[in-house]
Design a protein around this nucleic acid. Sequence first.
DNA 1: GACCTGCTGCGGTTTG
Length: 713
Amino acid sequence: MSSYNLLSEPIRKYIRDKRWESLRPIQEAAIQRILATDNNYVLISKTASGKTEAAFLPILSKVNFKESGVKVLYISPLIALINDQFERVEKLCEYLDVSVTKWHGEANKGQKDRLIKDPNGIVLITPESIEAMFVNKPYNVYHLFSTLEYMVIDEVHSFLGSDRGIQLKSLLERLQKINKNKFSIVALSATVSDVNQYVELKEFLGNSENTKIIRDTNKKDINAIFKYFPNASPELPIPLLEDLYEQTKDSKTLIFPNARGRVEEVAVKLKKISDKNKGHKNYFSHHSAVDKEVREYVEFFAKNQSHQNFCISCTSTLELGIDIGNVDEVVQIDATHSIASLIQRVGRSGRREGKQSNLFLYATDKWSLLQSLACWLLYKEQYIEPIVVNKKPFDVLVHQLLSIVKGTSGIILSELLEQLKTNSTFSDIEIDEMKDIIFHLTEIDFLEKIGNEFIIGIEGEKVVNNKEFYSLFKTETFFKVSNKGNKIGELPVSFQIKVDENIFLSARIWKIKDVDFKAKKIEVIPTNDGKKPLFFGNSADTAHKIREKMLEILFTKEKYDFLDEMGQDCIDDMRKDFSVFQLTNFTTERPLLLSNDNLTFYSFAGSKINKTIGFILKHNGIENLYFDDSSSFVIKNLNSDFISVLKHLNFEKSDLDVALRELVETNPAVLDFSKWGQFLPVNYQIQLLKNNYFDFEETINFLQLLKVIKNTD
DNA sequence: GACCTGCTGCGGTTTG
């Protein structure tokens, strides 16, 4: 225990009292390095491997908490995670007489006020709460956070590649600027396995040169079992549910059915089967539309009822590090959209004494089976999709610009530009581009120029003084569902929301008794039979590599011992269907099926490339139907030669910009992916579409190399 | 048929 001896005595006492026999590998490595240097570190290690302690043990040994001011700022993407970590960190801090303060939208205000009176110790916060402080009480940011020594960013991978991540990076740099002595950063992550991702990670922390990666490569052994139950209707096949029940009834299980409606269907139907068989009653659902208190109860149950089995049907709400302990079995119903997501889900399982740890992959559709298989094979190859960071985040610039102006009582142009230009988040955006955007914001009354100084304009006030301002993502308002004052969850308005309709929610069945459209409330009573609720969402993008792997599987002869008979037969059938194509190169060759009067182009490409191809086809007057499951375009009544059309698609730049402008003007909803993009000048909206929504560069690369293989008979 | 994430300030009332 060499690192142990380097820690301060109170921390060593903590370890002794905890009766830890040894430090985990990630802790051994991190303790030595964090104590010895002021480098930034990224600690990469699987869920529940002691990452939090790997960061906090050395930081608490090292930092001098005697001086006034907050010394350590911990940032989390989730309130639930802050509440979880608070208990752990606070217990540790009892040994040091250092105070820990939760600072998020649901945290106790008295504690926050106390911190302002006497800034000290450790603060646990969300990015949005930092944003709010910059906007409303910029002097408090200085008062509290100008003497930081360490910042800890938890679940850092959840920020990378998103607008929320760009916002956090900007906030981090704004904090760094008000600290005379630069603070060091320790970031924690469970799912970074590709060396290419290291570059983006280091860049994110703002000091690539002095950022080091510490990685525990210990893998989790898990046994995959594929089961194929083709379904003919939107409902899950009964044999699948019965098999699922048998596989999970004596375990602690997490089931990921991908969609909230289906999460409810699984929870309710399994519970019914369990009731019939006199099995356990602990069937729950957990997703964003389940009431918060109900979700907390479910988490509490999973964490504390160690002697009882349970089954939680959930969405990605249980992907991140909220502590529910380990489960015995993880079930994925139909394919995940990314390997990163699969890694997180697999990471939830752990071995119980004398029990094999299993991952069940159920598929209800042949394409989903193929995609699931592709994901599993890529997982075994340790592949993970690359992180794509928008280097010209004009929309986040709009937001941060308003945040900076609001935080001042008037700022001159040169000072505003200086603040943006010295923030490396925006270093690829030119000064002239910034000026364009500032000019446009002034035109639409988001900013107002008084003398030499910019302040927030009349229209800007409406936006900045709204609580929706602090976040980079949009949310719609749902109707609150309750039963005699007990909150159950919420549902979006749809034709389903009417009196006497029966729906599933929070793993139970309800009859709608009253809908109050004005108050957006639904009153329900329990009942015995019903339907899954309808939600409307967008599916996440599917990575290019996953589609490529799907194609590869179709052209190999391999048998998979983890596939059931139905599944292997299905894959063999698909292979037979595709055997009419003489295809050998999975990077460049793609099948083109010619039949009577239509053709089907199987692009086997990532979502962004497909969106771009669809747009270009339409732009060239080629009407097509796109099918996401099979990544294919069906084109009817095409007279010209499709291949030459595809190879010679019109990429004239000015022409493309005209087409994109037309798209933005006729269909502004195309910008819905960006909360702040709507306030950009139209030519910047076009650039945003090119950078974030479409991917012309990759599409051109793909099409240039593309060799279309036609069917032979 | 299709995921997730967060939220100030102020004035009022209640509580110790």
